[in-house]
Design a protein around this nucleic acid. Structure first.
Lengths: 246, 246
DNA sequence: GTAGTCTGTGAACAGTCGTACACTGACTGA
DNA sequence: TCAGTCAGTGTACGACTGTTCACAGACTAC
């Protein structure tokens, strides 16, 4: 059937796939310097080394290319999460390691992160919604992960989502800060990293204090203090579990 | 000297100022649907009802107009902060009220917030940097505000900046979430607001546990647990001060 | 009153844009 | 081998872009 010619140029499908990837790569490269809405079809094809009209052999729209880029970028993010999850030193140094992994990925896949950060609230609605959906999915995954922690395993789904959202927020802000830091200034980045770790620590410090039942209506109970009923020792222990100190 | 004609068309300066503002308003309106980098000078002048070339009578660049828009937008934000600060019910219901004020301002000055959110990581570098600077200034202001709280008044500047950064992050995320929520779905927004309040509560719950000295190098002390030395009761009291329960 | 200032006009320019269309020529499958 | 597929080419089109220049005409200052 397919007389796959292993010679010079490879099969037709492979070559098509190669130019398609060239278009994606060229777009991603250009998007480091500008936003998607100002990126023209002609710019992309020019950078990819093909004629403008050939673009339509691969994508119907620039929008379609954008969606593929989002998918590609989030595949990177998912790989990052998998790496963090696979870390054998979970529970210990978890904050330190997570931030470490984040920073590594942001550097390695700079353009993917930059693209997502830029288009998260960019002008193109379809990209915005796609990204929003992915991040939501992301927080959900983290929430299920969090459920495996002692102490947290007794939390409700809603509260775990809450905490996950908080953590994802901090992580996203950190990634964005790193992307915007002066490129060759290690001290600036170090400060961002330190801040991120401390902020995450600060968040986790609140965890043992949190009780789902009292948080559901924050403006109610004008008389009842409804303080956490957790004891000091248990709170302390639970807090230290999420901390860096082994 | 100036024979200010109070009649029909007002003075020349006033009329110039009026078309200038028309340009700004037109741009802001257009920016609800697209990003700044894709906004053309001709679009703005068309919407403002003047000829393209007249644009240069008011701004040298589109970039200059963008910077003015940022200034205008942050003036709104500063007014919001002043409103929150002026609230006599500080300390009590502070989280609830702050979120309330935020939501009100986001709705009232929708386009300002939308513009800033969109351009915070947009394609135009000069706008990005301007916004980043303003937000930093913002967190600093909040940090000084926080210093007036009991318990927090003994914190160092650095730690206050840290906490302020967390809060600003949460607020920014909340504003962005509101902007992206389905316009006429009150339940979606209510959920965002509730989430924001809970997240802020979660953050403040960590506050009493925080000790500056132990947080400065999160990967150190591999042996010493270095737990918070604060007693359970004091932590509890300090936490409740920042909470909604009066 | 008059000369001068200055906001807004209108035509024109060189570019860039997305896309339609007819085409080439190498690879494909029988 | 040979007809067919199809990635990539080249030309052409109307629309839109930022910016120039000379000009009009209402307001200003003396």
């Amino acid at each position: 059937m397919n007389s796959r010619t292993p010679g010079s140029g490879a099969t037709r499908q492979e070559r098509k796939q190669r130019t398609r990837q060239a278009l994606l790569d060229a777009a991603l490269l250009l998007l480091e310097q500008q936003s998607f809405s100002s990126l023209s079809l002609r710019q992309v094809t020019r950078a990819a080394g093909i004629v403008p009209t050939a673009f339509y052999r691969h994508f119907e729209d620039m929008d379609e290319l954008g969606l593929v880029l989002i998918d590609e970028s989030f595949r990177t993010l998912r790989a990052m999460i998998r790496a963090a999850r696979a870390d054998p030193r979970t529970y210990e140094h978890i904050i330190h390691n997570s931030v470490q992994i984040l920073v590594g990925y942001v550097h390695e896949h700079d353009s993917h992160f930059r693209f997502i950060a830029r288009e998260r609230f960019g002008g193109v609605a379809v990209l915005r919604h796609a990204i929003r959906g992915e991040i939501r999915l992301f927080a959900s995954d983290l929430a299920t992960d969090l459920a495996r922690f002692p102490y947290l395993d007794r939390w409700g789904t809603e509260d775990l989502q809450l905490l996950a959202g908080l953590i994802v927020n901090a992580m996203v802000s950190t990634a964005e800060a790193i992307l915007d830091a002066p490129p060759q200034d290690p001290s600036a980045e170090a400060e961002i990293v330190t801040t991120a770790r401390r902020q995450l620590r600060m968040i986790t410090l609140g965890v043992p204090q949190w009780h789902s039942s009292e948080g559901h209506d924050s403006r109610s109970s004008p008389a009842a203090p409804s303080r956490p009923t957790v004891t000091a020792s248990s709170a302390d222990t639970a807090a230290s579990r999420l901390h860096d100190s082994p």
